[in-house]
Structure formats: structure tokens, C-alpha cells
Write a protein that binds this DNA or RNA. Sequence first.
DNA 1: CGAGGGTTTGAATTAGATCAACTCTCGTGG
DNA 2: CCACGAGAGTTGATCTAATTCAAACCCTCG
Lengths: 243, 243
Amino acid sequence: MAVFSRPPTPGSPLAQEPCLSCGARADSVCNAIEDADLGRLAAFAVVSEVQPGQTFIEEGDPADSFFNLTAGSAKLYKLMTDGRRQITGFVGRGHFLGLAVSATYAFSAEAIEPVRLCRFSRVRMFRLLGEFPALERRLLERAATELVAAQEQMLLLGRKTARERVASFLDVLCRPGAGPCGRAAPVVALPMSRSDIADYLGLTIETVSRTLSRLRSEGLIEIPSPTTIRICDPARLAALASG
Amino acid sequence: MAVFSRPPTPGSPLAQEPCLSCGARADSVCNAIEDADLGRLAAFAVVSEVQPGQTFIEEGDPADSFFNLTAGSAKLYKLMTDGRRQITGFVGRGHFLGLAVSATYAFSAEAIEPVRLCRFSRVRMFRLLGEFPALERRLLERAATELVAAQEQMLLLGRKTARERVASFLDVLCRPGAGPCGRAAPVVALPMSRSDIADYLGLTIETVSRTLSRLRSEGLIEIPSPTTIRICDPARLAALASG
DNA sequence: CGAGGGTTTGAATTAGATCAACTCTCGTGG
DNA sequence: CCACGAGAGTTGATCTAATTCAAACCCTCG
């Protein structure tokens, strides 16, 4: 992990600047903190960059840092000793990571697209939480949201067919994108590989590929490139996703 | 849901008694609150009892209550329109429920054994959280713990074989029981039906039954009754569970 | 132009599901 | 006291969705 920026001197007039102008602030738990207090946050943050393929959280390592993604995207996963892998989620800008209770991380995290992140030491993070109750509240909300998503994913992994899993995946990708996908013809970017999608959906790459091909042949989607999918019929896809 | 006890008058000397003497306090988030403040908590709680088979949280219903289980056990699940079910967890004494961010519950909850629970209205709960930061911290810890468990379950559902799933299930059941299972010959009680186990592990009842039978024939477990299992070889079971 | 990774497609295989008896337990009532 | 019946659990036979094995295919990049 390459640190490309040292934290500015605490209390200096410029200290709050990096957080004030941070493009991820609106999407982050950080926006629970007033402009005036941002200096405290900036003083504690160490900004780093991670290149695609690089791991920045290793399952089993001492969990002494918290992370906030400010750019790029990453995958979170658990490994079995024989190499089987389950990706538990894809995360992007604004995502907060590392809320471990145990002394070690329960999952690994690897960058998919170039990632920029703010790292906070465990003790400093807890100090911040004590200082800013609104921040803690925000974290609790985030945790609750993720728990709901996790339960949805359990339903997918435990009870849905391959077809329903792939449809659910595409459905979720094109839905929450608050972007300009005005229900017209949403085009979703897939920064992750087929292998990642398979390990996220509990399938093999072959099944993912076959299922996508079939959805295409049925006119539900178009696949301009392996990393781009155009949803032609969002409604039918959503219906498929829920069984 | 049958309310069997009204909350005592706030501020009365007796108000804090129900919480002080509560057997679940040590296992609950409530123990973040000092004895002296327990009255505030008791004033807000409505105690209820739920019989086995009864549902006390319905997926999709307005999420205007939080719950704390003080006795019994329950299953949490999500349903698909065609009846497919995924049980996302079994919960017992001390478990806190209903941490929904959205306006509606994301899952249903049904009692397995007779359940006693404390219900808090949403607004009152948030008032309490503002009043007692330690309580909020405890909730955050709980949420983080559940998130870790959820990720483990995703690995199970997405990547483990039937054999590994059943072994994992038994392994977890006999492990955290801080009870007197001094690694000798842990006997685990299964209050839930085979159907519940199947829907928790993403299998069918037949596969669960077959797998248990096979584990028995291999001498790993004994099945004195359908609701009791004796783990003969915890180490080998644990090894099986992780692949 | 050719090599190598990622992806797609095809054929064979299999773990677990489905369909179908059968058994066990337990509560009810003659 | 025992026959009966219902529901849960087990066991067996068959089937199938998804995996595995195998072979193209198609980019991108040196």
C-alpha cells in the first residue's frame, strides 16, 4: 500500500482543506461532521492509493485500521484453505470499511479499479467516535444497511437459481446508481471480471457467461463489451430477479 | 403478539426493577446502562410473549419497533413470492432486533421456543441512544459482529458443500455455547425443525437428514433424538466445516 | 503477427433436488 | 390399554441444474 500523502499538521489552517474539498464527502460518513470540525478528521486520516489487484486488507491480519474509500472500487472476500472464494461485496466511493469487533479482519479487500482511501488507526477512530456522536450514528446506519444487503445476498445464495442470481446482480447494479439512468436504457459498467461475478454469486464463470448469453439472446440485455452491459428491459429483469 | 406486562410508571422507585433483575441483562446491549439509569430503560420497554410458530416481525411491515429478546429463541427469514425461504439467522436471549434503516422490516421473525421480548418504539429507542452513548456503541459492536457472521454465512451458502454446511452448523452450535461443554462431549439442542435447518443452510430437508445420517454412520456425531445431537469428534467436525 | 489472458461455447459429469415410500413418535379417543 | 392418525423425520430411486472438463474465440499488447 503506497502512502502518497502525509496528514497535515493538526490544527493548522489548511488541515481541514483535504476533507472539505473531498469529492467523496457527500457519499461518506464524514458528512456527519461540520465543516468547522473537519480539521480534526483530516488530522487523523492517512491518505493512500491502491492499484488494481493489490490487497489492502488481509483476512486474519490485526485489525488496527479503519478505511474510507474516496475513489475507485474494491472487492471484499473470504477464502477457504483450498482456494474457494466468496466475494461478500463490491464497494465504491464513500464506503466505510473495517468495522471489526475481533482483533483481526474477517475478510480481505482488493482493489478492482485504482482506489484512494483514508486510513484511520483504531484508537484514533474510536476517539473520533467519542467526539462526534453524529459520526457514530452514521456508522450505525451504515452497518444496518449492510446487514440488510447481507440478508438479501443470503437469500440469493441460498435459494435463487443461476438465472435469478445474475438478474438480481444486474438489477441491483442498475437500480441504486443515482446516476442519469432515468429508466431509459441503463448501461452498467462491470469493472470486475467474470470470475469476480461468479465468486460473488456463488456460481462458476462458465455459468455466469452462459446465463448472460442467454439473457442477451432473449433480448433482455445487450453486451457491447465484456465490461459493459445494457439493460434493455429493466422491468422484466427485475421480475426475473425476484423469482 | 400478547402483551403480558405494562411498563411501570416512569421514575417510580420500582420502575428499574424489571431490568435490574432481568436474566438477559448480562447478554444484552442493556448492560451498557448503569443500574441507576435502568429505570429510564424500563420505562420505555413493553414486555411481550410470543408462542412458538407465531410471527412477531413481518417483512415489509412498517419498522416502528425495536426488540430485545430476553428468553426463548426465534428464526429470522426472508420469503420469495413462490414460498422459497431463506433463514438468515437463529437468535436467542440477549439478541437485539429491528435495526432497520428503511421504513419497513427487511425480514420476518418467528418464535421457535416461547419467546419473551422487550419492545421499544422507534422514536423512544432513538431518544435512548441519544441519552446513552454507551448503548449506541454497544449496538454498533453488535451490528459489526452480525456483519461478520453474515459474511461467514455467505461463504457457507455460496461455496461450501452440503457436508461442509452441516458440519459448520453443528460446529458453530457447539462452539460459542459458553456453557459447560468443556470440549468433552458437547451435546447440542436443536430447537428448530429439519426444515428450518435446511432453509438456513440453503439445502433441502432430505439432504440435511441424509448428511446427518452419514456423519453419524462415520462416528462423528450421535443423534439420541431428532432434536439432540452429540458431537463425538469436535476437532474432525471443525476440520470438515472449513473444507 | 503471435502470445497470453479473459471470455464464450460445447459435451460429459455429478451433487443435490425432486419424487415417493416408509418409519417413528406422540397425542387422542374408543 | 391399545388402535389410530397426523406430522416430522428418514431412506431410496430418479432427475436435473449447475459444475467440470475441454476446446475455441477474441481482444490487447509487445
